[in-house]
């Protein structure tokens, strides 16, 4: 018997994403908007199952099995809503928009707290900043091109918060 389209998992987005696995979490950098996300194991597993073939019920069963804790379809829908909000799906699941309205995280926390299931969570993390990177330069530091600066703006030999008002065909140093 064929699976109903609305029961099928959506497709995970793969283009222009950098994905890295760390112990207990999956990190995703979206090259479209330079946003980074951190998926907990539950979200990561749901995302991994976004193949357009499995059903939501099958994924719920897999969650229960792999996370060693009971999980129903509402948990999967909650994860899909979050993944969709962070633009990690090719297109929303058939019920994702409804799920967003109907699945309350608070409700699920109350329901799953005794089972100690980690509810799906997708956390945004700030994209790499100059201070932590080692080589990009902060405001006021000497530079010769904008890409040397964390702000992306090099004006008159120094990194600035705003673009250089001086038109400079040579790449951002400006003639000051």
């Amino acid at each position: 018997m064929g699976k109903k389209a609305e029961e099928l998992m959506p497709l995970a987005r793969t283009e222009r994403l950098i994905v890295e696995e760390l112990p207990g979490e999956v990190l995703v950098l979206d090259l479209e908007d330079n946003k980074a996300h951190c998926l907990n194991p539950t979200s990561a597993l749901v995302w991994q199952c976004c193949d357009g073939k499995m059903t939501v019920a099958e994924v719920a069963r897999r969650l229960s099995r792999e996370l060693n804790s009971p999980a129903d379809e509402e948990v999967v829908w909650l994860a899909l809503g979050q993944l969709d909000r962070h633009r990690l799906l090719e297109r929303p699941a058939a019920r994702t928009s409804r799920a967003r309205r109907s699945v309350s995280r608070r409700e699920l926390i109350l329901r799953y707290a005794p089972a100690a299931l980690a509810l799906p969570a997708v956390m945004s993390i700030a994209t790499p900043s100059a201070a932590q990177l080692g080589s990009l330069r902060p405001l006021g530091a000497a530079c010769s091109l904008g890409i040397q600066c964390a702000s992306g703006n090099c004006c008159c030999g120094a990194c600035t918060a705003n673009p250089c008002p001086i038109i400079d065909p040579g790449g951002g140093t400006g003639t000051c």
Binding site: L27, L29, I125, A126, T127, P128
Partner: peptide, 16 residues
């Protein structure tokens, strides 16, 4: 820890 996460992603980007 957040910095470690950022660096991990940035490392992958810079390798590309």
């Amino acid at each position: 820890r957040d910095t470690h996460r950022r660096n991990t992603l940035q490392a992958a980007r810079l390798e590309h």
